[in-house]
Design a protein around this nucleic acid. Structure first.
Lengths: 121, 121
DNA sequence: CATCAATATTGACATCCATGAATATCGACA
DNA sequence: TGTCGATATTCATGGATGTCAATATTGATG
């Protein structure tokens, strides 16, 4: 069987296309680490699913059996890595998702499989 | 303007569709936490991009300035959360991506924005 | 200004985690 | 069987992290 080695440039996800550089990996890992806690994942889910696309801290503290400073801490972590934004309106602070940031992470994980580099002719 | 509240069932990502249950969140968070380390992210990238879709431990240890047990540790973490599988062939152990598991996480993060629950008629 | 409600910050503590040295396991090969 | 190379496991350690109590901040309202 005759085999021919091809460079497959437009292959899969960026993950598989070329090895992740260390500095890119550091930034992305910070975001994934932020999602790597059950409470923070549920916070993201609650904010994303809340009507109007936003939720105030009071909505969130009511949804968990955790102290208010703990929720505030998790919100700060998610905000620091660019997954949430916050806006103060009156006494309340409203948080919303940053869709592009979440989509960036999602795209990285989609279609990760490498097509074989050897192509039959 | 006349507004009508609708249940939007097929809306966005599962994240926004309904609040993540705690036990689901625990399982997903474990996987995201596994990706929340720069070395492990690069390992996933290297394995995904390696020809044949697999890489042996020797390929990986050569790519990092880390001791071999450290790489083995990270591989175990990724394997434990279902992101990698391993197969021994001779003296070498080859690791490959579990595409479905990665896609599951990617899908969760894609299109997370909530369409407004109020629909104009 | 004084008070109250909502949220953030600080500090402390227990637990978890990344890393490497030392060692064990396991397969190949003489 | 004995040795060697590849990989995994164990153990120790310094640093990061989740949690809460106490306190600070900030805006609204009297």
């Amino acid at each position: 069987m005759l085999m021919n080695t091809l460079e497959v440039l437009e292959c899969c996800s960026p993950l598989a296309r070329e090895p992740l550089a260390e500095d890119q990996a550091v930034g992305l890992a910070r975001a994934f680490k932020a999602l790597g806690d059950p409470v923070r994942l549920r916070i993201v889910s609650l904010v994303a699913g809340h009507e109007g696309g936003e939720a105030c801290v009071c909505d969130l503290t009511a949804s968990f059996d955790l102290a208010q400073p703990t929720i505030s801490h998790h919100l700060k972590v998610l905000k620091d890595v660019g997954l949430l934004t916050s806006e103060r309106r009156g006494s309340w602070v409203y948080y919303r998702i940053v869709p592009d940031r979440l989509a960036e992470l999602g795209a990285l994980l989609a279609a990760p499989v490498q097509a074989t580099a050897e192509v039959d002719r």
